[in-house]
């Protein structure tokens, strides 16, 4: 199904909330997936993969801590939404020339929208690198260098984010970013459903228009 960006963002936000994120982080997930779809990446597929992996994990497991200059989760791989929010919240540090190092992380491409946003805030160009692939973000369309097959891996050993010269490389192809497969739609709707309350007679009564005097 081809979806509008507003539909994609709304579904992603609800699914992330249903999978246990706080509303504020779920909003970050919605915006990130929207950005990915708008730039030709399979945003909804990536989020569905992440939510399946992290379903039921408490935030305390996912919360990043800095050890020896590297951000790591307390237990298991980092969540790219949590880590992405951290990148954006620390955009000022990036602007001062710092390199951000992240330990093992799930679905690393989900970091790209956050890195792009942090670069925009800091008024610079950044590179996001993992497993031999590098995304250059800032200004116009995302540019890619290295091994394209590593772009959509489900796990990355470690990721570095640093200020970059704009070594102009191939622009990332724009595929059908708004095309959402039936399987992904089902997965995300399944998570979203958890945010809906079972209807009660009391809630049904008077919520909308009745017929009297029409």
């Amino acid at each position: 199904m081809i979806c509008s960006l507003n539909e994609i963002e709304a579904l992603a936000r609800k699914a992330a909330r249903g999978a246990g994120m706080s509303w504020g982080l779920a909003e970050e997930a919605g915006k990130a997936v929207r950005w990915l779809s708008d730039h030709g990446f399979p945003g909804p597929d990536l989020l569905a993969e992440l939510l399946r992996r992290n379903d039921g994990k408490p935030y305390s497991d996912l919360a990043p801590r800095q050890l020896d200059g590297v951000w790591r989760a307390r237990r298991g791989p980092l969540c790219p939404i949590v880590a992405g929010a951290l990148i954006c919240d620390r955009a000022d540090e990036l602007g001062q020339g710092a390199t951000l190092r992240l330990g093992e992380i799930a679905v690393p491409l989900l970091l790209a929208p956050f890195a792009y946003e942090a670069a925009r805030t800091a008024g610079m160009t950044v590179a996001l690198e993992w497993q031999g692939v590098s995304l250059v973000l800032g200004g116009a369309a995302p540019r890619l260098a290295g091994d394209e097959t590593a772009l959509v891996v489900a796990d990355a050993g470690s990721v570095a984010l640093f200020p970059a010269d704009d070594r102009a490389t191939a622009s990332v192809r724009t595929s059908a970013g708004r095309q959402v497969s039936a399987e992904t739609m089902r997965a995300l709707e399944g998570f979203a459903t958890r945010t809906y309350a079972p209807a009660t007679e009391a809630s049904r009564a008077g919520a909308g228009a009745g017929r009297e005097g029409d």
Binding site: S22, G24, E27, Y59, A85, D89
Partner: peptide, 10 residues
Amino acid sequence: LLRHPEHRHI
């Protein structure tokens, strides 16, 4: 916010 994601929205 790193410690309190529940306040991120507000």
